[in-house]
Computed example of a mutant assay.
Amino acid sequence: MERVDVAVIGSAQSGLAAAHALRRHGLAPVVLESSDRPAGSWPRYYESLRLFSPARYSSLPGMPFDGDLDRYPHRDEVIAYLLRYADRLDADIRTRTRVLEVSYGDGAFGLSLEDGSQLEARAVVAATGTFGRPHRPDLPGLEGYAGVVLHAADYRSPEPFTGQRVMVVGAGNSAVQIAVEVAGRAHVTLAARHAVRFARQRTLGRDLHWWLARTSLDTLPIGRFLRTPPTQLIIDDGRYRPAVAPGRPDRRPLFTGISETKVIWTDGTTEEVDTILLATGYRPDLGYLAPLGALDASGHPRHREGISLTHPGPVYVGLEWQRSLSSNSLRGVGRDAVRTARHVAAHLAHFGEAGLGSGRAD
């Protein structure tokens, strides 16, 4: 069995930032990525996606975005950036390597891989994010709906919905962005339990993230108090509020039921809907840790600011609200990676690293 210093599961921004931080402690991380390239889920996001934060605030440690730092990079720019970052990173990155489960015994972690092989590691960094586990809430009547049900994770572009009657469920940034985009080709309703609330992307000529950095709000360790925020602010670059206000898309409270392909609104009226698109968020994609007992009943990890509360050795990078407002974003994972890498290095120093090292095998 191959033995390694640290196994980093996932190679998008969280895994790459973790590997960078671990290398600075002299460790030899092995990064395990299930897809064909070290860009995580970014290639599967919808085509029009742009970052909310300017390039100057969206870089990983050690390598800034090139070009205009005040622009908002689009999806393909982020993919290219992550691939360049991985190329420059002195770490063993293994693509097409899916981790099925992680177990623990005799002071080490055993990783069972999809190809039938196994690794042994003294520490594990779980950095798989959330995209692989779309949240599909239990909505009234949805199980009996005879039309098409999609999640935002399935959405790529508005063309397939041309001429349809589409309902987007949600009140977050993705819900509003997708609804406005599809409304150019279809009749769209945005339905949600909560009101849509907007925040200006720029105030007094400065981007929102300039203000967050200047006030230190972006870095305050308040994540555990924000795990379930009541509503999400929509970052408006000037396109979304003007589109939603006149009803493109329409806004309505969440439906009360469904009858075949008709939704039942709160006033008792019904309406035919071709597609229901759930922009209802994601949950941590950490099923491989279930054998450890590291997750609660809902699949969330038991941790404090990224440090496991159940075992010595596992840490997390890239969880929403892990430590700060930006913990699951390009602009925030680097800070959390530094803290968790420090914990891993201390753990290995305490328990000893004899016999470990990337590429060693029995």
Rank of each mutant, 00 (worst) to 15 (best):
H303A: 09
L16D: 03
T280N: 03
T189H: 14
V31L: 01
Y72C: 02
T162M: 11
G257C: 09
Y145N: 10
V30T: 01
S35Y: 00
V182F: 10
S59L: 02
S298L: 10
D207P: 05
T270K: 03
L22Y: 04
F65A: 01
L89K: 03
E143D: 15
L289G: 04
E272Q: 11
D267M: 03
V78L: 02
L233C: 10
R283C: 08
T310V: 11
S358H: 13
T228G: 08
R331C: 15
E159Q: 13
E120D: 11
G257T: 06
L139P: 03
Y85A: 04
L49N: 00
R193H: 15
A361M: 08
R185G: 13
G357W: 02
D76L: 08
L139Y: 05
P137E: 09
Y282F: 14
R3H: 08
G129V: 07
R94Y: 05
R339T: 14
R37S: 02
P43R: 00
S48I: 00
Y72G: 02
R239M: 12
S259P: 00
A146P: 05
R202M: 14
Y316P: 03
G129M: 04
L309A: 09
S58C: 00
Q201T: 14
G293M: 06
E260C: 07
Q118L: 12
L190N: 10
H311I: 04
V124T: 08
T219H: 10
G26F: 04
L60H: 00
S298N: 10
G268R: 04
E33D: 00
